[in-house]
Design a protein around this nucleic acid. Structure first.
Length: 481
RNA sequence: CGGGGUGUGGCGCAGUUGGUAGCGCGCGACGUUUGGGACGUCGAUGCCGCAGGUUCGAAUCCUGUCACUCCGACCA
């Protein structure tokens, strides 16, 4: 029996042994997704989709609080529209999926399945923006986009992925720049307070910028193994698209002017970040704010008189307090249920058995520490809420520690190469501002790239870690998914 | 797009010198269990990725093809 138990637990490969396999095991065992018959596309299973719905709810409320409105654009983009902005099309055309036939007939112009919707928004903005009174336009859309990726991984990179894309138009450059930074702050706050993920934020270098953007800002969380994930981006476009699409308005000074534009997005990749940031060898660990089930209520000896009734009453009580609870009265063994909800990353488990009922108590177990706490049923709601809050702060604390432990500095070329080779994580190093040095470092290290120029830069030295010329910025470097 | 790997019940796999498919898990019924992945009995489930070929006979040999997956280059 003991041997069998062991085998069951070993269904998840340990992180230490093979992080990639661990990741795949977790997404499957936690029932987040399944592979589909379409290459690179995945099926969101109910539990995985529920996480996305909670992320949506949290972000959507934040966007709306700041005055944004949701819209929906078509999923097809005529080739002529997509190609209006030169840099943009060069960035995206190579990975577009094209529709060339409609019904029985070949189309006169092929249609791209949207890889991103800047061009569609611009076409529309051209029609609805005429006066400063029409500005700002603060639009957002929740949709899926398609990018024909060569290699794909569940949640991290799929050919079709779900996301939100905000697109805004403003009277002034200052206002648009402020919007760009504001939305990055929203992402940063959401990552921290909802996903329990602290992250590095900053500006992308010229080389890493979004196709067509003047500035790209990014949030870069670090995964458990030290690898970065571009977790969200916010772009300032200047008036480049406005000029390309001939979007003009009559300003307060009665002059015809071009508006200034931003766009910003996060995707279901966030779920990948949650998995790789918080998970452990027993499976997923979900931050309480977005966990579809916050409390797994497991009745003990449920066949005994009164146990299920009492458990159901407790469930209703917790639900009434606004908690997301699942009472599992299935006939699987208790141990099986424990394992099941651990794999699925439910933050708090509540055990209720005959002895507890007799004592007017129950047992709470934290998914992070596995610590058992015996609490009175009289104040169970407060206790559960406290444990959920504790799980959140422990996840933040753990992730913060990982981030700082895996952050190294390099002041010389040798140090940089050594860190890239031997120390998984981020590297802080000075940089001259030349893309050639980024290219060289990437080649020498086999994939370490600039993540961003953080908002607060340390002065590590006067010279570029690569070429030795005068340094312009401190850059955070790392490998990425 | 380059390099590797794998395709056999839902999942993980075995299948010898070619002889007509098996194991574990899971699934269903019943019974016993029930505070860390329970046990017994019975039962159901296969276009052996696909298409050709060789052969009396192919999961097995040959050719082609498709898919998935991992590692690189490209990207949220």
């Amino acid at each position: 029996m003991a041997k069998d138990n062991k085998k069951m637990v070993e269904q998840i490969t340990s992180m230490e042994e093979d992080f990639t396999q661990w990741y795949t095991d977790v997404v499957k065992k936690a029932e987040l997704m399944d592979y589909s018959s379409i290459k690179g596309c995945m099926i969101f299973r109910p539990y995985g989709y529920a996480i996305w719905e909670n992320i949506q709810k949290g972000l959507d409320a934040r966007f709306k609080e700041l005055g944004h409105e949701n819209v929906y654009m078509p999923m097809f983009i005529p080739e002529s529209l997509l190609t209006k902005e030169k840099d943009h099309v060069e960035g995206f055309a190579p990975e577009c999926a094209w529709v060339t036939v409609g019904g029985e007939n070949k189309l006169t112009e092929r249609l791209a399945v949207r890889p991103t919707s800047e061009t569609l928004f611009c076409e529309h903005f051209r029609d609805v923006i005429h006066s400063y009174r029409d500005l700002p336009k603060l639009y957002n859309q929740w949709c899926s986009v398609v990018r024909w990726e060569k290699t794909t991984r569940p949640f991290l990179r799929t050919s079709e992925f779900l996301w939100q894309e905000g697109h805004t138009m403003h009277e002034t450059e200052d206002e648009a720049r402020a919007e760009t930074l504001q939305m990055l702050k929203v992402y940063e706050e959401f990552y921290l307070n909802a996903l329990a993920i602290p992250a590095v934020t900053g500006r992308k270098t010229e080389k890493e910028k979004f196709a067509g953007a003047e500035e790209t800002y990014t949030i870069e969380p670090m995964m458990h193994n030290g690898v970065a994930l571009q977790g969200g981006t916010s772009h300032f476009f200047g008036d480049g698209f406005a000029r390309a699409f001939d979007i003009t308005y009559t300003a307060r000074d009665n002059q015809v002017r071009y508006p200034f534009q931003t766009s910003w997005g996060v995707s279901t990749r966030m779920i990948g970040a949650i998995i790789m940031c918080h998970g452990d060898d027993n499976g997923l660990i979900l931050p309480p704010a977005i966990a579809p089930i916050q409390v797994a209520l497991i009745p003990i000896a449920q066949h005994k008189e009164g146990v299920l009734d009492r458990a159901a009453a407790l469930r209703d009580q917790l639900k009434a307090a606004g908690l997301r609870v699942k009472l599992d009265d299935g006939d699987q063994s208790t141990g099986w249920k424990f394992s099941q909800y651990e794999m699925k990353g439910v933050p708090v488990r509540l055990e209720l058995g005959p002895k507890d009922i007799e004592n007017n108590s129950c047992v709470l177990v934290s998914r992070v520490t596995r610590e058992k706490k015996f609490v009175s049923l009289d104040n169970v709601i407060e206790e559960v809420e406290a444990m959920l809050a504790q799980v959140h702060s422990e996840l933040v604390e753990r992730a913060r520690r990982n981030l700082s432990e895996k952050m190294t500095t390099a002041t010389t070329h040798e140090e940089f190469l050594d860190a890239a080779e031997n120390k998984p994580g981020f590297i802080k190093a000075m940089w001259c501002g030349d893309s050639a040095c980024e290219e060289q470092l990437k080649d020498e290290t086999g994939g370490v790239k600039s993540r961003c120029i953080p908002f607060v830069e340390d002065h590590l030295s006067d010279v570029c870690v690569c070429c030795g010329k005068k340094a312009k910025h401190m850059v955070v470097w790392g490998r990425q998914y």
